[in-house]
Structures are given as C-alpha cells and as structure tokens.
C-alpha cells in the first residue's frame, strides 16, 4: 500500500494548493476547531469547513488511486514469478492493494464525492496518484525492492494517518496498516533469497535498489520548506508528522536493513551524523519528481492506458450484474403483487 505525502493539486502546473480564507459560520467553525484542538474525531455527518472537506477528498482519493495503479507494476510480474510460492504471495499482495483502494474510495465517498466521479478523475488524467508507480519494474528483484522500500516508505507515511482527525480515513488506515507489514516483509525476504543466490542475482538486487532508492525518498513529498499546506494539514490533524521527519525516519530505519541484506544504497552523501543522531543523505532531484507527477514520467501513459482498458473491459460485467439484479427485483415484486 502506498501513499505519498501528497497533497498536490490535481491540476498540473500548480504546485501548491491555495488555501482560501474561511468564510464559514464562525460559531460552527469555533466548535470544529475546539474538537480538533481536543484531538477529537470528525465523522461524516458532522459539520466541517469546506476546505477541510476538499483537502480530505483530494488526499483520500489520490491515496485510493495510488493503491489501484499500484497494482499494475507488480501485477506485471504475476505470470512471471519464479515459483508457485512467489506467485501466490504476489497475487495476495496485489489483491490487498485492490482492497486498500476500496477501503479508501469508501472513506472518500463519505465526504460526498461519488465512486464514478473519482474514477473519472483518475481515468481522465486529472487526478494524481503516487509518482512511484510511473517507473517500470524491469526485473524480478524490482518486485522484492518494491515490497521492501516502497511499501516500507508507505508504512512510515500511513502509520501517523491512523490518528487522522477524520474518522473514516483513520479507520481505513488502521485496517491497511495491519495488512501492510506482510507486504514489506515478503519483499525483503524475496531479496534475501536472491542475495544468497548467484552473483547475477545479487547484481539484480543492487540494480533494483539503485533505481528505486531516490524515488522512494521522493515519495514523502516536497521538503517542509516547500510544503506551504503542511501547516494547515497539521492544524487539522490530517497530517501528524512532517514530510522531512518521515523521510528521515525512513532513511534511519532502512540503512541497517540494507546492511543486513548486503547491498549499498546509491547515495555517496549517506552517512551517520553523530551530532544529529540521524543519517545524513544527499539531494533529491525534485525536478524529476514534479515532471513525473505532472504526467511525464517513464510509464505515466502506459499505466493510465492499462487502467482505463481494464475498466472498460469490465464494463459488460458491471452492466450484466446490474441488469441481473434489476430482473431479480422485478420478479420478486411481481410475485409479491
């Protein structure tokens, strides 16, 4: 499961979301603020400021889209998994991602958007999803590296979301995080097995990590200094930990894991800082990140085309199920009459 600290606007070319000054009823606003200050939860029928609702709809739907598109890079390897065991594991993981997408779409729907609207946003290219899925999965080690690093980064991002102020989102995240640990562990273990194999297999692991490492660091979103809306997200209890702090946690957790695995991380600036008690790391290429977010990554077009085709190919199934349900209902009504 994947998210990006990713409250990016759905319209391309605009890197920050304008926070409109509140024109809400001050009394309702005060009650809302008081509940947030008391670390209370907001439920679907409760009054909430429009900007809070809009921010959540965008973030939760982008998160859901990321789950759904996230099925594609790995789904690509189901038919080529090296053993029946790995195939079964991969199918289970990809199915989980689909499930996570469904939990999240349902959570977003409680805010008054519809499933069709959200899918339309995704399929038309208007809505964003995590940039990480716009990179190709070139060899089998990529599948392991995605589990270890991409799901690892996603877990870092998602654990604080379990305490999100919006009830349905936080409950969906609790469910997701419970299932997520399997994703990371299976990936790491798949890489461990390859590292015990041939020289060529070890090179595949190193190659996959080299290609994915920087993209995973970018998953946490722009640096705090360039995230003008983070403060609002924090104020609302939607965001609990800043992008840079999450990124640091991820780096600190991952370096020792890389050592056990026996690979290097592709950053010459990566070293322990005794004073900070954290690892220092190098510069992330944000231009590449924004290019990919805005649709120009290596696989953006292919991912979207695959997703749209899958949806269109399934149209007759959805239609048939609905026609059948209607027929059953009509029959029942006739019998009752």
């Amino acid at each position: 499961m994947y998210t990006q600290s990713f409250n990016v606007p759905d319209q391309a070319g605009q890197k920050t979301v304008a926070v409109t000054p509140s024109t809400e009823n001050p009394e309702l606003m005060a009650r809302f603020d008081a509940r947030i200050d008391a670390d209370g939860r907001i439920e679907p029928q409760d009054w909430m400021p429009e900007a809070y609702r809009r921010t959540l709809v965008r973030q939760i739907s982008q998160h859901a889209h990321s789950e759904i598109v996230g099925m594609l890079p790995e789904g690509n390897w189901i038919s080529r998994a090296p053993s029946l065991k790995r195939k079964a594991i991969l199918i289970a993981k990809v199915q989980d991602e689909g499930g996570h997408g469904l939990y999240l779409y349902s959570a977003a729907e409680t805010l008054g958007t519809s499933r069709d609207q959200m899918l339309e946003g995704l399929h038309s290219g208007k809505a964003k999803y995590s940039s990480i899925f716009n990179y190709p999965t070139l060899n089998w080690a990529d599948v392991g590296a995605i589990g270890w690093l991409v799901d690892g980064a996603a877990i870092m991002n998602q654990i604080p979301l379990c305490r999100c102020s919006y009830g349905p989102y936080s409950r969906a995240m609790v469910r997701v995080c419970k299932e997520e640990s399997f994703h990371q562990r299976q990936g790491y273990e798949a890489l461990l097995v390859m590292m015990k194999g041939t020289e060529a297999q070890r090179e595949m692991v190193q190659d996959a990590v080299n290609r994915l490492w920087w993209k995973c660091l970018a998953m946490f979103g722009p640096p705090d200094a360039d995230s003008p809306n983070s403060a609002q997200g924090m104020r609302w209890g939607i965001k609990r930990i800043s992008n840079d702090d999450l990124r640091q946690k991820f780096v600190d957790a991952t370096v020792p894991q890389a050592k056990v695995l026996g690979i290097t991380l592709p950053d010459p600036d990566l070293k322990w800082n005794e004073e900070r008690q954290h690892y220092d790391y190098g510069q992330i290429d944000w231009q590449e990140f924004w290019d990919t977010v805005e649709g120009n990554g290596p696989c953006n077009k292919e991912r979207l085309a695959t997703r749209v085709k899958a949806h269109n190919d399934g149209q007759w199934v959805r239609d048939a199920a609905q026609a059948y349900a209607r027929k059953q209902q009509e029959r029942a009504m006739k019998e009752a009459a």
Binding site: L102, Y103, S106, E109, R115, R171, A172, R175, R318, A321, Q322, Y324, A325, Q328, Q329
Partner: peptide, 10 residues
C-alpha cells in the same frame, strides 16, 4: 466498512 454491489448476494 462499506462497498458497492449490484445486489445482496454480490
């Protein structure tokens, strides 16, 4: 949670 389905058995 919740989900969309055409009928009860689905």
């Amino acid at each position: 949670g919740s989900l969309h389905a055409a009928d009860a058995s689905q």
